[in-house]
Design a protein around this nucleic acid. Structure first.
Length: 850
DNA sequence: CTCTCCCT
């Protein structure tokens, strides 16, 4: 690493920004900052170095101080949450990401800072991307002398170099040992979202191979807790526990369990560590010889439609695979089994997508608003925040009162941004202060900001459980908290965070009698309940129980969410849901608190919508009226409405008819025939001005033709009294009425003198069903509609059986009649079946009158 | 079937 220092110095003499690419283990983090301190351009100013984790910041600063023969806090210091070791003499200050963004908000010029170093920039955390964008903004105006160094292990150096106006890229060499890589699968990439059991099977089989083929300890990378549990169960069933120790390792484990996993085994057993990606960068495990990489990881994906994130199991990137493999080569040559094929590897993304593309952006958007930026385009980004995610965050912040109509920060938003917590929780803290409930609010915000203090799969989502554990910890110590199922290190962290939030609260808000709770009784006797306070932060996540016993809730937005199975929170009709996974169809509730209906009504009083709802109730087939109180999609209260307005009744009635269809109306024979005749005329004379009485038109235009007759009607029964024939007739003026009778008559007079009904079906010729004998002597098929439409004759036997269907009567007499005649003579011998139908007397009788 | 980190 020392070899590249001259080049680094030379590049900084001519450039404002330099990119340093060097693999892990190269020592860049601790070698570079002290080496640059003596550069003339840094005279009188300091270096600020950004680390992604507190532990890394502390360790880097401590190591550098030791190299200089000093205590940390002299020339080299650090500043992380809860802890600062810096002095006036400090020239290298190692900070974590949140500290830097806060500092830039308070001192945008970065007074006294000559160089900002971004370490581990390839991790592309949201905060690091934001800090870089802010630095570039500062450099383009306020601080043209500020310099940047981007340090990274496996970075797409081209993109960042381009962003930094073609900054030079300096390449450093690593010092790690060779690791043999074996691809264990041929064939296709497994399905997206693979089953945990499938992954566990593959990983445990490969661990068996590794035990046989390789010496030393094994580190396996799995996507999450479920796969780790399954793998552990498979291995436990097959391996002798006397020789082999299996350790799960993931962030949700207690500190003690994590420590046990990273330390060498006391009895000298071989270790198998089953880890999430926490072992990729955050936790280093010494003595690993073999890595088994499942190739999967689980990560949150923000969905701007729901405003929620959901966990998805995804393929890792090639960069991540390299990082995982490297974990086997820290102390000596190692070996890595990859559970995919070399061919599949080309399908992997080269790098992990940056967090800014998949995270909830509300905190970032609030920070930017404070900076004066209201759109992604206001800054230069390596990857700009997605516009949809950005807009969703603005919407949330606007609803919380942090942004105004123009998306500028409000005074309230400024106060929220001052608090070291998510804007939602910031709003809760400020609101709670007014109610004298600050201490409870601090505990809630701390609980939600830190890992859950209650572990285990069968934990309840009830946040009160956590509050009780905290209270027990405070009054009776760690053992009391542990007895309630809480993790004591977790409790300590939450209490520390809670205290820090308390100290950040505006002074007048911290009234007497609202000091941090000391006992469980004090916590429960607070001025507001957890559910009420959380409702300030999550007004869009009030849950209303759908049905008793199912644990299913409907949220304010209308989305569904479900409690863990058998959770006793399901006894409550209303919940404030603080943490949930968006899920595929239904969300899953992880943390929530009960909320009384009374409190809900008071809390949301200004936002309740009161409306009189008049609607068609299918069950009773009638119009019903209700007074409804709603909170967006939640119906909180209903009461019958005695006298709904006539207008509302009509609207509901019409919608009921539309739902049930035209058949709900009393279609008498007369009305049906009239409608058919008019429909036929509409088809035959498209420009004739006839109304279109198709089902679609009638339903569409109920207001026009039916509504005038509906006054006083409220149910299906009353509809039966309508005279539809009269109503349809009223659609025609007198001229059209007589034209109707002329062109689509109800009856035709046939040669026998009978008036025979015509049957109309839209789209078909009108049918005249008449006994054959009555038509003797008629040559031309009757026509209607100004002779434009030929009637379809159904010529019947004396017993009304159709003998012939035709539109050509002349042709019938001359041809088919003679065949038909023979048959008729056989069946109806008493009737007269003449050989010459032209001359025969048409008749309704058996024999013609003489 | 609950990823991981972080905050003057």
């Amino acid at each position: 690493m020392h070899k590249i220092l001259p080049e680094l110095r030379a590049q900084f003499a001519n450039h404002a920004a330099v990119v340093l690419s060097a693999p892990p283990g190269s020592g860049k983090t601790t070698v570079v900052p002290p080496a640059l301190l003596a550069e003339p351009w840094l005279a009188g100013s300091t270096i600020l170095m950004l680390e992604p984790r507190r532990l890394a910041a502390r360790m880097a600063a401590t190591f550098m101080a030791k190299q200089l023969g000093e205590e940390v806090g002299q020339t080299v210091g650090y500043r992380v949450r809860f802890e600062a070791k810096v002095s006036k003499a400090t020239r290298v200050e190692v900070v974590t990401e949140g500290v830097l963004t806060r500092r830039m908000q308070d001192d945008p010029e970065l007074t006294g800072v000559g160089l900002v170093i971004f370490d581990e920039f390839h991790e592309r955390s949201l905060q690091a991307d934001l800090a870089l964008a802010l630095c570039l903004d500062v450099m383009s105006g306020l601080r043209e002398d500020l310099k940047l160094l981007i340090m990274s292990a496996t970075l797409d150096t081209g993109a960042v170099s381009t962003l930094l106006n073609n900054a030079p890229v300096v390449m450093g060499a690593g010092q790690s040992y060779p690791v043999g890589v074996e691809y264990c699968r041929a064939g296709q990439l497994p399905q997206p979202q693979p089953q945990p059991r499938e992954i566990a099977k593959q990983v445990s089989a490969t661990i068996h191979r590794a035990l046989a083929e390789q010496p030393g300890d094994i580190l396996a990378f799995l996507p999450g807790g479920a796969e780790i549990r399954h793998t552990q169960a498979l291995l436990n069933a097959a391996l002798p526990s006397a020789e082999i120790a299996i350790h799960p390792l993931f962030g949700d484990l207690s500190l003690a369990a994590q420590t046990a996993a990273v330390q060498p085994d006391r009895q000298g057993k071989r270790r198998i560590i089953l880890a999430t990606p926490i072992a990729e960068t955050s936790i280093t495990i010494e003595g690993i010889h073999t890595v088994v990489d499942s190739g999967w990881k689980r990560s949150p994906q923000f969905d701007p439609n729901s405003g929620l994130s959901r966990l998805t199991t995804q393929r890792i990137s090639r960069a991540s695979a390299t990082q995982r493999t490297g974990r086997a080569g820290r102390l000596g040559p190692g070996y890595c089994y990859r559970l995919w094929s070399l061919g599949e590897e080309h399908g992997l993304k080269p790098f992990d997508p940056p967090e800014i593309l998949s995270a909830d952006l509300s905190q970032l958007v609030l920070d930017l608003a404070r900076w004066g930026i209201h759109a992604p385009s206001g800054l230069r980004w390596l990857d700009p925040p997605p516009p949809g995610h950005f807009a969703q965050a603005q919407e949330v912040l606007h609803a919380l009162g942090a942004l105004d109509q123009q998306n500028r920060i409000t005074p309230l938003g400024r106060k929220m941004a001052e608090l070291p917590t998510h804007p939602r929780l910031g709003l809760m803290l400020l609101g709670a202060a007014k109610q004298g409930a600050s201490s409870l609010a601090c505990d809630l915000a701390a609980l939600l900001g830190e890992r859950d203090i209650i572990k285990g799969r069968d934990r309840s989502a009830d946040i009160e459980d956590r509050l009780h554990a905290l209270a027990a910890f405070r009054s009776d110590g760690p053992a009391a908290a542990k007895a309630l199922g809480a993790d004591t290190d977790g409790c300590r962290r939450v209490i520390q965070t809670s205290r820090q939030l308390w100290e950040h609260l505006p002074k007048p808000a911290r009234t007497k009698g609202d000091a941090p709770a000391k006992t469980a009784a004090a916590a429960t006797a607070a001025a507001a309940t957890a559910g009420e306070l959380l409702a300030l932060a999550f007004p869009d996540r009030i849950g209303q129980r759908r049905a008793l016993g199912q644990g299913q809730y409907k949220l304010t937005s209308g989305r569904g969410a479900v409690l863990p199975a058998h959770d006793r929170l399901a006894a409550h009709e209303y919940l404030t849901v603080a943490e949930l996974d968006a899920g595929r169809i239904e969300g899953r509730i992880f943390l929530a608190a009960p909320l009384s209906k009374e409190a809900l009504m008071i809390l949301f009083a200004p936002r309740l919508q009161r409306e009189e709802k008049v609607f068609w109730e299918e069950q009773s087939g009638s119009v019903k009226g209700q007074r409804v109180v709603r909170l967006e999609e939640l119906v909180l209260a209903t009461a019958p409405l005695a006298k709904p307005s006539a207008e509302a009744v009509l609207t509901a009635l019409l919608s009921g008819i539309r739902t049930l269809g035209l058949s709900v109306l009393p279609w008498s024979e007369k009305a049906t025939e009239l409608r058919a005749r008019l429909q036929c005329l509409h088809l035959w004379q498209p420009d004739g001005g006839w109304p279109d009485l198709s089902e679609a038109w009638l339903l569409e235009n109920l207001e026009q033709w039916l509504a005038p007759y509906l006054s006083g009607i409220r149910n299906a029964e009353q509809l039966k009294k309508l005279d539809l024939a009269a109503i349809l007739t009223a659609l025609l003026d007198w001229k059209y009425q007589s034209q109707l009778d002329r062109e689509a008559p109800t009856h035709l007079t046939v040669p026998s003198g009978s008036k025979v009904r015509l049957h109309y079906t839209p789209g078909e010729p009108p049918v005249l069903a008449v006994r054959l004998q009555e038509m003797f002597g008629l040559a031309d098929t009757p026509r209607i509609c100004n002779n434009a439409v030929t009637v379809l004759l159904h010529l019947l036997s004396p017993a009304q059986r159709p003998m012939q269907i035709t539109q050509d009567l002349r042709g019938f007499w001359e041809g088919a009649y003679h065949e038909v005649k023979k048959e008729l003579r056989g069946r109806y011998p008493k009737h007269h079946w003449p050989d010459d139908p032209w001359q025969a007397q048409p008749t309704r009788r058996i024999k013609p009158r003489k």
